[in-house]
């Protein structure tokens, strides 16, 4: 049965009328037309749907609408003006860190978390932290280089 769920998305208080089983990614894409969030595997493995929930990256495919009432969500659209994300976008472009772009929104949310949480990370650690985000185009080399470029620029 549909019910009203109120949550904060990219700084705006939103109320959507959805079933409790609706995935957060579907709330973003279908109800709020924020199609930057991509759904891949839909069971928490591929990382494409990663967004920020209550200040930390989370999978929006295995988080359902009922549990999102009151949550503070930031999708890729909400990072447009974010300084770290601006630097990451430029680095992703310079290092050819994307081709089809399907994994990129999730990659960027995780990349930003790596940059902020692990300022000393080296290539090995960056690869380990990226293990939960699958890319089928780049072979990861460009993504790792892009994140290292931003990490180094902040040291």
């Amino acid at each position: 049965m549909k019910r009203d769920v109120t949550l904060t998305v990219n700084g705006l208080l939103e109320t959507v009328r959805v079933e409790p089983r609706t995935q957060l990614a579907e709330v973003l894409r279908e109800e709020l037309r924020l199609t930057g969030t991509h759904l891949g595997c839909e069971h928490g493995v591929c990382g494409a749907c990663t967004v920020e929930v209550d200040g930390a990256p989370a999978r929006s495919c295995i988080l359902h609408a009922g549990a999102c009432a009151g949550a503070v969500v930031r999708s890729i659209e909400g990072f447009a003006e974010d300084a770290v994300m601006v630097a990451l976008r430029e680095a992703f472009s310079a290092e050819h860190a994307l081709q089809c772009g399907y994994c990129t929104p999730g990659m960027l949310v995780v990349a930003r978390d790596i940059v902020l949480r692990l300022p000393g990370a080296d290539a090995v650690r960056v690869r380990e932290e990226l293990a939960g985000n699958l890319c089928r185009c780049t072979g990861y080399q460009g993504i790792v280089h892009a994140i290292l470029r931003v990490l180094e620029s902040r040291r």
């Binding site: 089983r21 999978r59 359902h64 009922g66």
Partner: peptide
């Protein structure tokens, strides 16, 4: 919900209700 969430999506779990 990081185990139950995928199980719900895959319909390995089909509970009447979830207590969060």
């Amino acid at each position: 919900g990081q185990s139950l969430g995928p199980m719900l999506n895959l319909r390995l779990a089909m509970p009447e209700a979830v207590a969060d």
